[in-house]
Design a protein around this nucleic acid. Structure first.
Lengths: 207, 207
DNA sequence: GCAGAATACGAGCGATCGCTCACATTGCCT
DNA sequence: AGGCAATGTGAGCGATCGCTCGTATTCTGC
């Protein structure tokens, strides 16, 4: 199966044991990113934390960058799970309730692993994996646009593409800023308040 | 004047020559950040690009971090110049025109040096100088809140602090995303369109 | 014009980084 | 049981990093 002479690292782990190794490496990377930051996340350190030799690391990840990209992908998949679920839930609701629920979901998504989310948001550009984020954003735009189309009767906007951009960007920025930069001032009351305001913002804009 | 034995670097350059050195270093740092990214911006490389010895660099900046912080401060000062100017211009205008002008100013601010702005936005967290950004954000919130207070008769919001957070965050995210991530699709027409939408968004929210 | 302060220089230190490779161990298949 | 593929190991290489320090040059005040 494997043809290459082990120089360019194998990508696929077929046995149970190696899958555990890959998982441990990704998990260790996430841990170190959260606890010590990007600069401390050297490949040697990650391997050590994972309880795996540095050689094994390079069997499965061609570079440090690839490791971080794997963490990003895993995290984004978790986020999209939340978003897709929420969109399915609210498909039939009127927009007022639907938007409120969607914005609540956005907050929840940011609370899945806020510290990791923050580190990734800050460090992703360095990985050269900006495409990943672009893809992620694009899927968000597309999903929300579809939502708007399904509620076209309640929306006065002529350009749904633009409207989706405005809504998604605003909601993401509000929840991101609130959860990641003002977590201190954000008890449950303030949080409900914020969801109210954000809902009001996009609802009035769309109608 | 200088007491320390040259170990902890001097902060103040008193002669003309040394001020030029400091400027060259900051300018070189900005250039390298824009052209080659954070990782390539080593202190040796910065000194070389500035036409200055590495020793001189450490006379004026105690660390690489301090150098980047200086670039950040300079850039933020330029941005705030634009923002403060716009706020002064629109103080007497009714909100509808005023907000439009302010949002246009936000776009202009992002266009001062978009590439540098992007690199800084992405890399700032690494410098440990997050406080700088926080201060910057806070000044923005405060200025806009003051603006809202002066137009209290046109604003229905009960909590101006929260309203300022919502507006500033949304405007900043919209202009930031548009200018830095969708510059391709952003001719003058699309730009005017975006300003329209953003104005509508915050105006309806506030009234 | 001269002394001392201010400024500039750059070889090079110690640390760390990403990563390779020669070799050892484990698991699968017949 | 034995052979080969899959997986695991870690010492260490070459590069680069941030930064120091002893020395050379330039400027200022008298």
């Amino acid at each position: 199966m494997a043809r290459k002479p082990l120089t360019s690292p194998r990508k696929y782990a077929s046995q149970e044991r190696s899958r555990a190794t890959v998982d441990a490496l990704i998990e260790a990377t996430a841990r170190i990113l959260v606890r010590e930051g990007f600069d401390k996340a050297s490949t040697n350190r990650i391997a050590e934390q994972a309880g795996v030799s540095i050689g094994s690391l390079y069997q499965y990840f061609p570079s440090k960058e690839a490791l971080v990209a794997a963490v990003i992908d895993r995290h984004h998949e978790e986020l999209m799970q939340v978003v897709r679920g929420a969109l399915a839930d609210v498909a039939a609701l009127p927009m007022k309730q639907g938007l409120r629920r969607l914005i609540t979901a956005a907050v929840e998504a940011h609370r899945v692993d806020p510290k990791l989310h923050r580190v990734l948001a800050e460090q992703i550009p360095r990985t050269g994996r900006l495409e990943h984020v672009e893809t992620f954003s694009r899927e968000n735009y597309a999903l929300f646009r579809k939502y708007l189309e399904e509620h076209r009767d309640e929306v006065r906007a002529p350009d749904l593409e633009l409207a989706a951009f405005v809504c998604v960007t605003s909601i993401e920025a509000l929840t991101h800023n609130a959860v990641l930069h003002h977590a201190d001032r954000l008890d449950d009351g303030a949080m409900a308040h914020l969801v109210d305001e954000a809902t009001r913002l996009v609802l009035r804009y769309l109608q």
